[in-house]
Design a protein around this nucleic acid. Structure first.
Lengths: 133, 133
DNA sequence: ATGGGTGCAAAGTGTTTGCAAGTAT
DNA sequence: ATACTTGCAAACACTTTGCACCCAT
């Protein structure tokens, strides 16, 4: 069985994700960490984000363009602005019944579902209006 | 205003998506079309898939790895096997109330939501069991 | 004829990987 | 000491783009 080590870099990546209230991309985490440890490698950041998501210590949010990471551990839904690509959390409860329903209707073993709402945020609405005059 | 033309290639791409019951990736469409028109370019396939999705003639399904395209025009939910990456449709009705709910709770203009269930298909369940002995 | 569309190849993104050196256990 | 992890750069997979030519309208 594979042993897991608690490296300084792994700690840093975890702290970096937790210290942000938003939903950073891997590259944003990398940029943040470069200021703390200018030797850290992009590959290390990606590897640790994958590791931490796999280990259940952070959440992996899959949205268009670049994936995001989330310090929240409970499954929840996201809101994606198709204008500026901002990602935010939604105050909706995760509908676990849906997973049961799909399990019953298919022969899959369902692990979870991901729901992303797509829309235009207030700022982009204003920008659009302006642009279309 | 931009005019749109009805080129042979655009027709071919549309027909190719419609002629498949599954959820092909852009490259699968390209491979299919090469057999019909060996001069067709990957770029043309991508451009037309984007155009057709934008025009509402096909649906763009965003899942991990590579995006898929769907001939079905009604919004619906998808099932993704994390083992073999197969994508299938789900017999669940699109919950339009959720869009209203999110519109009310946020100041976004919601266009839609995307829900993808993640699980292991029967074939991969069998494969896994075998592999773990 | 005009400007949208095509094919090609090159460039972009975002992410992963091979390898030698480093380090947690 | 062992073998997991790192940093670097190169490789990857998927998609977009610049450009000259082509063709639908």
């Amino acid at each position: 069985m594979k042993q897991h080590r608690n490296t300084k870099q792994r700690q840093l990546v975890l702290e970096a994700v937790r210290s942000r209230k938003d939903h950073p991309t891997a590259d944003q985490i990398y940029q943040d960490l470069k200021m703390i440890d200018d030797k850290i490698s992009r590959a290390t950041v990606y590897r640790n984000l994958n590791y931490l998501a796999e280990a259940g210590e952070i959440l992996h949010v899959k949205v268009p363009s670049a994936d995001r990471y989330d310090w929240r551990l409970d499954f929840h839904y996201h809101l994606f602005c198709t204008g500026c690509e901002a990602v935010s959390d939604l105050p909706l409860v995760y509908n676990q019944k849906l997973d049961q329903e799909v399990t019953e209707k298919t022969s899959y073993v369902i692990e979870r579902h991901r729901t992303v709402f797509e829309g235009i945020c207030p700022a982009c609405q204003a920008r659009k209006k302006k642009g279309s005059v």
